[in-house]
Design a protein around this nucleic acid. Structure first.
Lengths: 235, 235
DNA sequence: CGATATAGTCAACGTTATTCACTTATATTT
DNA sequence: AAATATAAGTGAATAACGTTGACTATATCG
């Protein structure tokens, strides 16, 4: 056994001591995973990278998750938690739904690489059910019940996730390609025969608008307005 | 030289003869890629799989595309082409936009694994500009011009892509997990403390609805209705 | 203090995208 | 038609990836 403690840095490769027993938990791993994804690259989340981030062996994660996919699903539920942290129902159901929608947009934009992997998943996790209940509460306050309530819930929730998710995916793809954040909102067409595409040609300059959030706001307002118009007895 | 033609099957491993020069083209590769993705698995599209599908060396693809990502982008433009094949403007701008929306939904659902990789990309390809022009034509017919036209175009196009794309992603994830196609539209919560989530508990049974297209229809109608309501001079 | 199960580690495997040196089929030139 | 050039298909090699199984240390319980 000798004096291995004397010059450990010079030793073959074993610089890192073994981690203690309770060092890793699901939460710690999920936090690290989110931190790694927040650097922006879609494929940055690898077991090797997780190991480096936590000073652990890459395979240590398998003691807490049975696959990479399970880690991603846990990150998805964490994203949901972040988005509803501190949420309180507003005075009107429309304001509640607006608030929840903007929260999702903001969280997904902030953690876009993580959101890209998660926006189409149903985690069935502990936080997801909280949001679902919060949305259903607003729907209930508006006056819908039963099947109608669920249909309106579906239209709203699915739309918020889809729009926020696509924005996150575009942000990630833009970062990956080295473009500026709003890059993928810009559509710059230079057709060989402009006369074939008169409308694109006419609006060439205006198509460069890149304020994704304003578009999102417009879409949410459109849905809320249409929902309100179909309210059973709002008179 | 010699009589290698006599027993080629017995030879070491070289069963396949070398392909002729014009055998592979971008189109042929894209078609094969789409065929492979249509089998349903997200990660089925590999160079090895492409090679097998085309009877070619996996690395042959690099003579026509410089990376896997470029193949996926080409598949994206092909999806766009498929979705507008045979499209003709309808009598009213709303019917045109409905038609284009349903086409996108159908194409994305049919080729969901491919759509999952492509719905957030701006391909700037030859087919994309055709759809953009078709949408802008309907917007023009409705009466919008300039900046307003572009904003309404953004709301519409972004929403159709996001909703159809999320549906495609859910279909793919469900296939991957061995669920039935509508699996991810079902949200079945069994909370430990039902009284904490009264609205989820009350609507437990109705939450199992799985008709994604009906929801999509509702969302599109909501947007069209809201757009119509803001038309400048429709009176 | 010693047994035991749990959590972290290490080496290995099969796949993956990508690169590079090569070879051969076709198009062009003479 | 023969010679040449060049683009297109090939195969071996590499590094990184997720996952597995055998191992080994450590915290806790009796």
């Amino acid at each position: 056994m000798g004096e291995s403690a004397e010059a450990p840095a010079r030793a073959k490769k074993k610089a890192r001591p073994r981690l203690g027993r309770g060092t890793l938990t699901r939460e710690i791993i999920v936090d690290a995973a989110l931190r790694i994804l927040d650097e922006g690259q879609v494929n940055a989340l690898t077991f090797a990278r997780l190991g480096k981030e936590l000073g652990a062996s890459p395979t240590a994660m398998y003691r807490h998750f049975s696959s990479r996919d399970q880690i991603v699903t846990a990150v998805a539920d964490e994203l949901i938690r972040l988005s509803i942290e501190g949420y309180e129902p507003a005075a009107s159901w429309m304001d509640s739904l607006r608030d929840l929608a903007y929260r999702a947009w903001r969280t997904f934009a902030e953690h876009h690489a993580a959101a890209m992997h998660t926006f189409y998943r149903v985690t069935l996790g502990p936080n997801e059910i909280r949001v679902v209940d919060a949305i259903l509460e607003a729907i209930h306050d508006a006056g819908w019940r039963g099947r109608d309530a669920v249909f309106n819930y579906q239209m709203y929730a699915n739309m918020v996730l889809a729009l926020s998710g696509r924005n996150a995916a575009m942000l990630t793809a833009a970062a990956e390609a080295g473009m500026e954040p709003g890059g993928f909102w810009v559509q710059e067409y230079r057709p060989a025969h402009p006369e074939e595409f008169p409308y694109v040609t006419e609006l060439r300059d205006e198509l460069q608008i890149r304020d994704g959030f304003a578009v999102f706001q417009g879409q949410i307002e459109a849905l809320l307005m249409a929902m309100k118009a179909t309210l059973p007895s709002s008179a």
